[in-house]
Design a protein around this nucleic acid. Sequence first.
DNA 1: CTGAAAGCGCTTACAG
DNA 2: CTGAAAGCGCTTACAG
Lengths: 329, 329
Amino acid sequence: MKDVAARAGVGLKTVSRVVNSEPGVTQETERRVQEAITALGFRRNDSARVLRKGRTSTVGLVLEDLADPFYAPLNRAVEEVARAHGALLINGSSAEDPERERELALAFCARRVDGLIVIPAGHDHRYLEPEIAAGVATVFVDRPAGRIAADAVLSDNHGGARAGVAHLIAHGHRRIGFIGDRPRIHTAGERLRGYHAAMADAGLPVSDAWVSLGPTTPERVRAEAERMLSGEHPVTAFFTGNNRVTVTILRVITQLPRPVALVGFDDLELADLLSPGVTVVAQDAARLGRTAAELLFRRLDGAEDTPRSVELPTRLIVRGSGELPPVEG
Amino acid sequence: MKDVAARAGVGLKTVSRVVNSEPGVTQETERRVQEAITALGFRRNDSARVLRKGRTSTVGLVLEDLADPFYAPLNRAVEEVARAHGALLINGSSAEDPERERELALAFCARRVDGLIVIPAGHDHRYLEPEIAAGVATVFVDRPAGRIAADAVLSDNHGGARAGVAHLIAHGHRRIGFIGDRPRIHTAGERLRGYHAAMADAGLPVSDAWVSLGPTTPERVRAEAERMLSGEHPVTAFFTGNNRVTVTILRVITQLPRPVALVGFDDLELADLLSPGVTVVAQDAARLGRTAAELLFRRLDGAEDTPRSVELPTRLIVRGSGELPPVEG
DNA sequence: CTGAAAGCGCTTACAG
DNA sequence: CTGAAAGCGCTTACAG
């Protein structure tokens, strides 16, 4: 910038004015400055700008896995809202590791993001207190914050699961398996509560053998499913706790001689093309992201009301697999 | 930092040493500094650090759509490599708009990313010349750079498409429809060339009516497919140019009374569960991202050889839809 | 309409 | 082992 000013024969401040399209520069001066900028290949250094300005126009997003088809649309939605507000997006995957979540969030804060959107892996977010006190707007999505008060945007996991399981019950099922993610993950716990609620609503007993929470690796899910499908009183239907579980269960039940009903939490891209189509409880991931980002920018624009929690509805999409009648093993 | 130094009764440089875990500080001094850091809620400002240091340990990734299931694993792979090198990832979607690609890339450069990975939407990247000259390592993925020399990591689009179409020919098809993305997109053009090569290899004529490149909206793809399936000599098989086209074609042919064969470019999550399973030419998106990121960091570590282009193989995955025999309409 | 001075919060190079 | 000075590249507040 110094070089540009020298070459154009103007002051530093004038170059700054041109670079930022501020008013108060003659056309002729502006032309000379522009010429110098091109000739010298000048590129403004935003770090210096940030250092003076305070705001970075950058938003940080910590999610679980950038590659997960459920989170990808959320990621994109946050990007779009950020873009509309002139902000860039910096993001990273926690891989469901609380320590990694913390590292990412704090690294983003050290780069002075204006705001932070977090899909938490951990349950204690007091480490963010100094950042929030220093003015970093923070919104949690998909799962609530732990041990601090903060905005959160969640899906109605409990209600969605309850409706999905009730749907299976309405189609005659009495022994329904539930396979979900590790119980320390908030959404997994809520969906399990929904399962129990639906069973209780119908006055049905639940056997411990029908419920399994744990890592959603194909190996574990497959083993648990096969266990639930064997024995004297096998389950006649599954309610699956997320998209990864649903995919594995589909592979298992496709191989079986008898039909097994299925309702899955989260929608899948080709769910309507399978036969039968896969009945799901769908979340609107893009809307989760959009809502969280809008809340974030409202905070950045100065909204000071107490932290609030927004709950978005889920939607039961009926396609066939959830309407299969029970067939005794 | 000034406040921390004052409170701890030490010099600025000592605080800097503690914050950066540099050697040469007594345990006692370090303790006093740490205490002051906690008491004052001190958070290092990386913008100032960057301003002095030169390097930001940040990598920028411009892709087409953060939410596209094909690019999401690529995104994640880049993140993992960046993480292994202690760098953060800043990314954005061009939405296939060259101007937006340019804005994003230049915005990342203004924030002084150390390196840039670009899935280009445009065909003229001379706008990056000043950045590259200034030392920003740049690698293109999925599609080559336009009008500048730069590293590129590409899939073997031509060879993959050729093999996919040859597979359909080997199963008896003579009239094969090709529906792909807009011809200005490099991968679409290469895949079309592969289609023509396979047809020529077999000495088969190609009718203009069997080829359609354009936006991959469901509406257009569906209309083109229905056109190709009607008339006196309808196609008996499709080769689809990418995952979005494949999904739409699946919806179309599932509704038909007669079977139509299909080989798609790009794999799909549930492709093996459909009946028939979907035969595809799969790219390894994660490997594309990993290779590009590794090339980038090799450049950042000082590799100065001339720009090179890496081509990754594709893989034909046989699942059923590509082995259906031709059925006359 | 234009510019010189001060300062954002760090690190570098040096001296003690 | 520790610290004072200079400077990274901008913007702010002010004066002309």
